[in-house]
């Protein structure tokens, strides 16, 4: 059975006229890695907040349809219970630091303190989580003294240590340089490999192509396309509707117009696919 189940979900923020997302149907299987793409204002963050319970519990407003995760319905639950099932991390790593802890180690323990995990188990879980995200060497540093990529890994670790069933990530690398992005994606990949359900909003298309099982294209608050990365990310609909697409896809599409890329071959998304594709024709 699907761990995430959204049925006909429509949501309107307070003081607004238009719904930010509408008629969303979404099922995610346990262990699946789903990526969400879309132009600005498509409702990506709204969808993330809906999945993570902040809609409706924090933002109020008007939520219709059913949002169900791990068999619990959001309207019938409270935020403090909901967050135990669904972890959320977002763009700005600085704002995700609790601000009340003096070291990274304490920072990661913050969530476990809040849910009353006994001290011995707490330490074991914090250390295991830090080892997994390769930040053990930062344990005694102040969370404020870290680079953006390090801070984001601390933020992710702080969520992972709580062992949520579903991890929701809203553009976690949008403020990262290439090195920070790589570090963060290594953590996400590791989580996914361990069987965690991951829902990721991301505009770095090449990374999605590499990791995601399924891609959902969101446009004007509605699902426009849904399918494998290969199907969705190379669809000609995306550039028409203002989505950012991979530069390799766009080059190959131009090449295809001039007969340099066979029309029956799927367009490439990553550099490697493009190289392989073009190289094949030269032989």
């Amino acid at each position: 059975m699907a761990i995430v189940n959204l049925q006909d979900v429509t949501y309107k923020y307070p003081l607004t006229e238009e719904p930010a997302i509408r008629n969303i149907h979404l099922q995610v299987e346990e262990g699946e890695f789903v990526a969400i793409v879309g132009p600005n204002g498509a409702g990506k963050s709204t969808l993330c907040y809906t999945l993570s319970g902040f809609i409706p519990h924090f933002f109020k407003g008007e939520l219709n349809g059913t949002v169900e995760i791990a068999g619990v319905e959001t309207q019938k639950s409270s935020l403090d219970e909901w967050v135990l099932n669904v972890g959320l991390a977002f763009q700005n790593p600085f704002n995700q630091i609790s601000g009340s802890k003096f070291t990274v180690y304490e920072e990661i323990a913050f969530g476990l303190e809040n849910i009353g995990v006994p001290r011995g188990e707490m330490k074991a879980r914090v250390e295991a989580a830090m080892a997994m995200t390769a930040i053990s060497d930062l344990a005694d540093r102040s969370p404020y003294s870290l680079s953006g990529g390090q801070q984001q890994r601390v933020a992710l670790t702080s969520i992972l240590v709580m062992e949520p069933k579903v991890l929701v990530l809203d553009e976690p690398t949008s403020q990262m340089d290439p090195i920070g992005t790589r570090e963060v994606f290594q953590v996400i990949k590791e989580m996914s490999a361990r069987g965690m359900t991951v829902i990721l909003v991301e505009h770095k298309i090449e990374w999605i192509a590499e990791f995601a099982d399924r891609v959902i294209a969101l446009h004007n608050g509605e699902i426009l396309l849904e399918g494998t990365p290969g199907e969705v990310l190379t669809s000609p609909l995306l550039p028409e509707r203002g989505f950012g697409i991979s530069r390799y896809t766009s080059v190959a599409r131009t090449a295809s117009g001039q007969g340099l890329w066979p029309g029956d071959r799927r367009l490439p998304i990553t550099l490697q696919e493009a190289v392989d594709g073009f190289a094949r024709d030269r032989k």
């Binding site: 403090d80 967050v83 977002f90 303190e113 809040n114 933020a155």
Partner: peptide, 24 residues
Amino acid sequence: VEVEERAIAIEARAFTSKLEKTSL
């Protein structure tokens, strides 16, 4: 402006949990 995101971030880490807290 940072207040809103930080409130979300600590709620995501069970800040308002009704369970009895422990200390590291």
